[in-house]
């Protein structure tokens, strides 16, 4: 036995095995890292795919509400991603959507009751929009497109990335609307008493207009990136 370990014929095999394992590990970690990153910026659920708008616009009149909603969604997405990914081979194809919805609804109920117990004031302001996380198409979309086809590690990375992207979007919109509409951020006054608040920003129209402007900004960014890469391609083509 000891000889077998010391045998130099065995060494390469062990080494090869190790290398394969490492390679696999590194590969998988870069994969999950990619999955994690792409949800935040390149495939941001709100700004790029325009998903999950209902809760997004309704609760982003202050930054605190936005964060609470983002965290609740994060919890639901993570929990249901893990469950769906674990049971992906057990759930029959024909009734998968109903199964996902029931799993999601369970987690949303948990999130709803927890918010009510932990931060009752914020829960009161969010009102009926916490239960409405169930029909957030972003969550169902991630289940259908990703968690049901990948193993748990990747599903967790994807859920983390997507929900961080979602929180980022909520926070951006919430802060801008609170600063313009109330002159404050997280309830702290920014401009002193002489600031004339732009009330419309706190009301529903402000949500639509602000999101429209942010989408416009994102369009401009992608357009600029496209132009830059096209220019780069022509320059490289000229050199070669």
């Amino acid at each position: 036995m000891i000889e077998a370990w010391g045998n130099h014929y065995g060494c390469p095999y062990i080494f090869e095995g190790c290398k394969k394992k490492w390679k696999k590990l590194i590969m998988s970690s870069t994969n999950s890292y990619d999955e994690f990153l792409k949800g935040i910026w390149k495939e941001n659920p709100v700004f790029v795919h325009v998903l999950g708008l209902c809760p997004m616009l309704a609760v982003t009149n202050t930054a605190i509400n936005a964060i609470a909603m983002g965290l609740a969604t994060f919890f639901v997405l993570l929990g249901s991603s893990i469950l769906v990914s674990l049971f992906r081979n057990l759930i029959p194809k024909q009734v998968r959507i109903s199964c996902y919805i029931i799993i999601i609804a369970t987690f949303v109920t948990v999130a709803d009751y927890s918010l009510q117990a932990l931060i009752p004031e914020v829960h009161k302001e969010l009102g009926a929009f916490v239960p409405l996380i169930v029909v957030n198409c972003m969550i169902l979309g991630r289940m259908e497109a990703f968690a049901s086809k990948n193993r748990v590690g990747l599903a967790i990375a994807d859920a983390l990335g997507t929900s961080i992207g979602f929180v980022f979007a909520l926070l951006t919109l919430g802060s801008v609307r609170e600063i313009l509409g109330n002159g404050s951020l997280f309830g702290v006054s920014l401009f002193g008493p002489h600031f004339e608040p732009w009330i419309v920003m706190l009301l529903p129209p402000g949500g639509f207009l602000m999101l429209g402007l942010i989408l416009l900004f994102f369009n401009w960014l992608t357009e600029r990136a496209k132009k830059a890469s096209a220019q780069l391609a022509t320059v490289e083509g000229g050199i070669s």
């Binding site: 639509f208 402007l213 369009n219």
Partner: peptide
């Protein structure tokens, strides 16, 4: 740049 969702969003804002 305005085409698509950005435009619809701003129209919706005005309707709202």
């Amino acid at each position: 740049l305005m085409k698509g969702t950005a435009m619809s969003m701003i129209i919706a804002g005005i309707l709202s």
